[in-house]
Design a protein around this nucleic acid. Sequence first.
DNA 1: TAAGCGTGGGA
DNA 2: TTCCCAAGCTT
Length: 321
Amino acid sequence: MTAPTKLPPSPADHPADALAGTPDAGSDGASGHLLHSPVIAWFDAHARDLPWRRPEAGAWGVMVSEFMLQQTPVNRVLPVYEQWLARWPRPADLAQEAPGEAVRAWGRLGYPRRALRLHGAAVAITERHGGDVPSDHAQLLALPGIGEYTAAAVASFAYGQRHAVLDTNVRRVLARAVTGVQYPPNATTAAERRLARALLPEDERTAARWAAASMELGALVCTAKNEACHRCPIAAQCAWRLAGKPEHDGPPRRGQTYAGTDRQVRGKLLAVLREAHGLVPQADLDRVWHEPVQRARALDGLVADGLVEPLPGGLYRLPLT
DNA sequence: TAAGCGTGGGA
DNA sequence: TTCCCAAGCTT
């Protein structure tokens, strides 16, 4: 039970009701939703001009951006996104490349398995969908590297469909504005999905607008730290703020360990492979980490993941197939 | 369900 | 410097 002790007297399983104008009022009618209208109006005035939001980006551009933005900040994605789309303007262009080229072009965005999966998705789109990014949520979900969030995001942003787009930004906005807590749970819960669905405007175009707007609000105003309530269009209705902004209790938010882990070693190994042009001898890889057991384990992991291709004679390269 | 998976910037 | 965080997915 994550509901705060003090909330408007609405049924616990239908918290959205508390925000509708009247119990039976449509959530997107001319009367406007208590959250939708101000957030969408704010978005119209303050949305960033990001390349994947421009019409010419197309569904492929949206999809590429969503892969790159999985756990990577916008500012770091921007230059790589531009180069990627210039080089591979359509899924089929990427599909005919070696997967290692995708890994190399991915650069330092992090989590390079995403590059491999994006390549795999491009192959699947070319083979199964005639080279066009599918608009169907289930077909998107079936592609490698696409989970619940990304499928909803592509369907909504690229095709204007009505889906609950529940990313970390939206989760935080809903946790605060509706549930009245500082942070959402570590893992997405059924209650959060229910709430996001309940808050979805009926009208398809409005729903898509709401998805982008609520996400942007979380990214620019309702941030994890140093939230800017004075710039928030729904500060007056925010349950968390009205409750006096109580600090997160409960279990500590899961942190990410990195220093000294296999992950760090994998990163160093792959950096060598990325920057090399020809085949890389084992000795060049051995130089990145002093501890041989962990080094070997990390390299084995990269091979197992398909990020590195081992060749006879102790040589390595990014995958050709 | 929880752990594993990169990288770099800002507080 | 250290810690926290950034449009998640997969197993």
